[in-house]
Deep mutational scan, measured.
Amino acid sequence: KKTSWTEEEDRIIYQAHKRLGNRWAEIAKLLPGRTDNAIKNHWNSTMRRKVEQEGYLQESSK
């Protein structure tokens, strides 16, 4: 079943993607209940745009 993505999950994906790049299977290990494919789709459909537009979460990672 599809549940919506939480801010916490987005944060984990964002940090992991910065470190690992497009290694979705590795990132998926950090998110129980999410598949690598689901994460990749979420990144491509939602997060990548956010990151590019806003420099997503930069201000809170100090």
Rank of each mutant, 00 (worst) to 15 (best):
T6W: 00
R11S: 09
K62Y: 08
K40G: 05
R48H: 07
E7L: 14
G55R: 10
Q53G: 11
A38F: 03
L57P: 13
T3H: 05
T46C: 12
T35M: 04
K1S: 06
E52Q: 09
K29I: 09
Y56T: 11
E54Y: 05
E59S: 10
E26P: 00
W5H: 00
N41A: 14
N37E: 14
I39H: 00
E7S: 07
E26R: 03
R49M: 10
T6M: 03
L57D: 14
V51M: 08
Q53H: 06
Q53I: 07
K40W: 08
R11W: 09
K62Q: 15
A25G: 14
Y14F: 15
T3M: 15
T46N: 07
S4G: 08
T3Y: 10
K62C: 05
L30P: 03
V51A: 11
S45Q: 15
A28D: 01
K40T: 01
L30G: 04
R11C: 03
K40D: 03
T35P: 04
V51I: 11
K29Y: 05
V51N: 12
D36S: 15
N41Q: 10
W24G: 03
R48Q: 14
A28L: 01
P32R: 06
E9V: 03
W43V: 06
E59I: 08
E54C: 09
I39R: 00
R11P: 00
N37Q: 12
L31Y: 02
T46S: 12
N37F: 12
S61N: 10
E8R: 13
H42N: 00
K1F: 06
K62D: 08
R11K: 14
I13L: 11
W43A: 01
V51Q: 09
T3K: 10
M47C: 05
K2T: 15
R49G: 12
R48C: 10
W5Y: 07
S61P: 09
S45P: 02
K40C: 08
G21C: 03
T3V: 13
T35F: 01
G55M: 05
T35L: 04
W5V: 02
N41Y: 04
M47N: 08
S45R: 12
N44I: 14
A25R: 09
R48T: 09
I12S: 03
I27S: 02
I12Q: 07
E8A: 15
W43P: 01
T35E: 13
E8N: 13
Y14G: 06
K29W: 02
I39F: 00
K50M: 09
W5L: 04
T46R: 08
E8H: 04
K29H: 07
T6S: 13
T35K: 07
P32F: 05
Y56A: 14
R49Q: 14
E8K: 15
L57G: 10
K62S: 08
Q58P: 13
E9K: 00
I27H: 01
N44F: 12
W5K: 02
L31S: 00
R34W: 04
H42E: 01
T46V: 13
T35S: 13
A25L: 07
P32Y: 02
Q53N: 15
W5R: 00
G21F: 00
R48A: 12
G21T: 02
Q53V: 14
E54S: 12
T46I: 13
Q58L: 11
L31T: 05
K40L: 12
A28G: 06
D10S: 05
N37H: 12
R11L: 10
S61Y: 10
I27T: 02
A28W: 01
E26M: 03
T46H: 10
R48V: 13
R11Q: 12
R11V: 07
L57Q: 09
N44P: 01
A25N: 11
N37T: 14
I12N: 00
R34G: 01
V51R: 10
H42C: 01
R49P: 15
G33C: 08
S60H: 10
K50W: 05
Q58D: 09
G33E: 14
R48F: 14
S4F: 13
R34V: 07
Y14L: 13
Q15L: 11
N41T: 15
N41I: 13
Q58R: 14
G33D: 14
I39A: 02
S60Y: 07
K2W: 07
Y56R: 15
H42T: 00
N44L: 13
G55W: 06
V51W: 11
I39V: 12
I27A: 03
N37G: 13
Q53F: 06
E59V: 08
R49T: 14
S60T: 14
E8T: 10
Q58C: 08
Q58G: 14
W24N: 04
T35N: 12
K62I: 12
D36N: 03
Y56I: 15
Y56P: 14
L57E: 13
E52L: 07
I27N: 00
K40Q: 15
R48I: 06
R11F: 11
I13Q: 01
L30H: 08
H42Y: 13
E9N: 02
A38W: 05
L57I: 11
N44A: 11
A28I: 00
Y14R: 10
E7V: 06
R11N: 14
R48L: 09
D10E: 15
E54F: 06
M47A: 04
M47D: 04
A28H: 01
T3C: 07
T35A: 09
S61T: 14
Q58W: 04
K29G: 05
K1H: 07
R34L: 04
A25I: 06
A38V: 06
L31G: 00
E52P: 14
I39C: 10
S60D: 11
E54I: 05
R48Y: 03
S61D: 11
K29D: 06
W5F: 15
R34T: 07
T6R: 05
T35Q: 08
K1V: 09
H17R: 06
R48P: 05
K29T: 09
K50H: 08
W43C: 01
E54G: 14
K50Y: 03
T46Q: 10
I27P: 01
L30Y: 02
E26N: 03
A38C: 13
K40V: 08
I12Y: 02
I27Y: 09
N44G: 08
E8S: 12
S45F: 06
H42S: 00
E54L: 12
K40I: 08
E59P: 07
K29C: 06
N44H: 09
G33T: 11
I13S: 00
M47F: 12
I39E: 02
G33A: 10
W24S: 02
G21V: 03
R49E: 13
Q58K: 13
K29M: 13
D10Q: 11
N41R: 09
N22D: 10
K1I: 06
N41H: 15
I13R: 00
E54R: 10
L31E: 02
E59K: 06
R34E: 01
I13A: 03
E54M: 10
A38E: 15
K29N: 06
K50R: 12
H42W: 05
G21L: 02
I13K: 01
H42K: 02
D10N: 07
E26Y: 02
R34M: 02
H17D: 02
K40R: 15
R48D: 11
V51S: 10
R34C: 09
H42D: 00
R49N: 11
T46D: 13
A28E: 05
M47G: 06
S61E: 15
K1P: 04
E7R: 07
N44D: 15
E52R: 10
Q53D: 07
E52H: 04
N37Y: 11
I39N: 02
L30N: 05
L57T: 12
R48N: 07
S45C: 11
E52I: 05
S61V: 15
R48M: 15
I39K: 00
S4R: 14
M47Q: 05
